[in-house]
Every structure is written in structure tokens, then in C-alpha cells.
Design a protein around this nucleic acid. Structure first.
Length: 260
DNA sequence: AAGCGCCTCAACCGCATGGGA
DNA sequence: TTCCCATGCGGTTGAGGCGCT
């Protein structure tokens, strides 16, 4: 098949159906063969991508949940742009989705930061970091995680004020260890996204106990990772079983063995 | 209603990696 | 050891949708 004859661009429904049918017979591998045998005027690469990002079973579509957002932000902070690795911790999500989500999030974050820098006050007008209310009034997500609010609407003066008001009202920013607003402006929002799930607390208690006996065996990082990522302790919802995603399990084994 | 600009996300591209011959 | 092919991965692009004027 001449490469110049290959179709590019959006997939038609008939193409999807044909690809699904041939993958069911031939399996999700040897994509050049799948493309050739199926008669789709597509490259093997294109077929593979279409399957992985859109057609394969258990894929979720639609907006990220707050829990997924927290996981993405947390893992990105740790691993950087390892989209595939991060996506493996989010059943039903693809690396492409994670990447696109991050870019969107990053753009919003930059907008917020630019806006705040432009309108930076001379003194701290709205955050009392010494107040004990600051952390006690944080949002509680439905799985008990403590998280900060990230407003996505900060793109003009009115919204900037709205954001400041929101912070004042909710006391949502957890200014963990920072003495004043300057740190907030300089370091960026991601530093204030605190995840503190009950699973992490429970596991960290357990590990603390364990570490008295085997202090050398488990590194602090591995423990933290395991608490965050253990597919048996996270609730995925929608009847999704961690064993449907064996990659995660292997990754967890690596983490548990101290390999990042 | 039309035009415009911005945003999202599906898809593409090119390089890296792994495995078999 | 080297080569080749299949697959994986991350960066980039562009079509289409949506909101604003």
C-alpha cells in the first residue's frame, strides 16, 4: 500500500467498527498487519493510536474527577512529563488525555500566576497563614482527601478579586510552612496542592510501626508511593478492578521494591 | 446572524526502546 | 554484535466547538 494513499485525520464510525472487528480477531498487536489486512487505508501507527486512545475497552471519556486531578498533579510533581507512567495509575485514562489535561491545567495556572503577579499587592491582603482556621476550613473531597481550591476563572481584574475573595472566605489555601504571601506568588499554585488521604495516613502509621522492626527495608519514598498508588486501596469506582490493569500492579511492585 | 479568537483534544510526527533473527 | 521491525512515548499540530462582540 503506497504511503501516499493512506488516510489521515478524524476517523469515521465505519472505520472504528472495522478496526474493532479486526482487533477482536487479530489481537491488539502487529498493527501494520492489522491495518493491511483490515483494508483500512490507515497506517499501523494510526490504527494503534486510535485503538489505544479511543476504542479499547474500559476507557473513560469526559472530564477528570477531582481525585484524578489530584493524582495527576501529584504524580507530575514527582515524575515530570512521564505521561504514560502517570496514565497507568489512572484506569481508563490515556497518556494523551493526561497530557492534554496537564497542558490545559498548566495554561490556567500560568494565567493565574501572571494575573497575580500583575496585581501583586504590597502587603498580604487576604491570607492569614498563622490562623488555625486556614487548614481546618479546607475542602473535603468525597474520599476524605484534604485539598486546596484551584480557581480556573482568574483571567481579568474582576476574576482576580473574585479569587482573592474566595480565598478569604474559604481559607482554602494551605500555606504549609510559608510565612507570607510572597512565597505563594513566587512558587506557584502546585506547591499548595496538598494530598493527605486517609489511606496515606493509615499506611504511614502502619509503616511507622513496621519501620521500628525493619527500618532499612522500606524507604520513606517507597512508602509514600505505595500508599498513593496501591490499586487495592484506591477506590476506582465503576466496577473497575485493578487486576484489569496489570501494568499498575507491576509498577507497584517496582515501587515497593524501591525502584522508581 | 456573522465574524473572530480562544480552547480543547484527537491525531500526527519523529525519536527511543525492546526484542528477535 | 548488529540490524531490522514493532511498539512506546512525548511533543506538536490543527480541526472543530464555543463564547464573545
Amino acid at each position: 500500500m503506497g504511503e501516499e494513499n493512506l488516510r489521515k485525520g478524524p476517523w469515521y464510525e465505519e472505520e472504528d467498527e472495522r478496526l474493532k472487528a479486526f482487533v477482536a480477531v487479530l489481537g491488539a498487536r502487529r498493527w501494520d498487519s492489522v491495518a493491511r489486512i483490515s483494508g483500512l487505508m490507515r497506517s499501523g501507527k494510526s490504527c494503534r493510536l486510535r485503538w489505544l486512545n479511543y476504542l479499547r475497552p474500559y476507557l473513560k471519556h469526559g472530564a477528570m474527577t477531582p481525585q484524578e486531578e489530584q493524582i495527576i498533579l501529584g504524580l507530575h510533581e514527582r515524575w515530570g512529563n512521564k505521561w504514560a507512567k502517570i496514565a497507568r495509575r489512572l484506569p481508563g485514562r490515556t497518556d494523551n488525555e493526561v497530557k492534554n489535561y496537564w497542558r490545559t491545567y498548566l495554561r490556567k495556572k500560568e494565567q493565574i500566576q501572571n494575573s497575580l503577579l500583575l496585581h501583586r499587592p504590597t502587603s498580604s491582603p487576604f491570607i492569614d497563614v498563622s490562623s488555625s482556621e486556614t487548614s481546618s476550613s479546607s475542602d473535603q473531597t468525597n474520599n476524605g482527601q484534604t485539598s486546596t481550591k484551584l480557581s480556573s476563572n482568574i483571567n481579568n481584574d474582576d476574576n482576580n478579586k473574585e479569587f482573592a475573595d474566595e480565598l478569604n472566605n474559604n481559607g482554602a489555601m494551605i500555606m504549609d510552612g510559608f510565612a507570607d504571601c510572597d512565597d505563594y506568588y513566587q512558587k506557584g499554585l502546585s506547591d499548595y496542592v496538598i494530598t493527605n488521604s486517609p489511606y496515606e495516613n493509615r499506611l504511614s502509621d502502619w509503616i511507622k510501626m513496621l519501620s521500628e522492626e525493619q527500618s532499612d527495608k522500606y524507604s520513606e519514598d517507597a512508602v509514600e508511593e505505595y500508599c498513593l498508588d496501591d490499586p487495592m486501596t484506591w477506590s476506582y469506582g465503576d466496577g473497575i478492578n485493578a487486576w484489569d490493569f496489570p501494568d499498575m500492579i507491576w509498577d507497584d511492585m517496582d515501587l515497593f521494591n524501591g525502584n522508581d
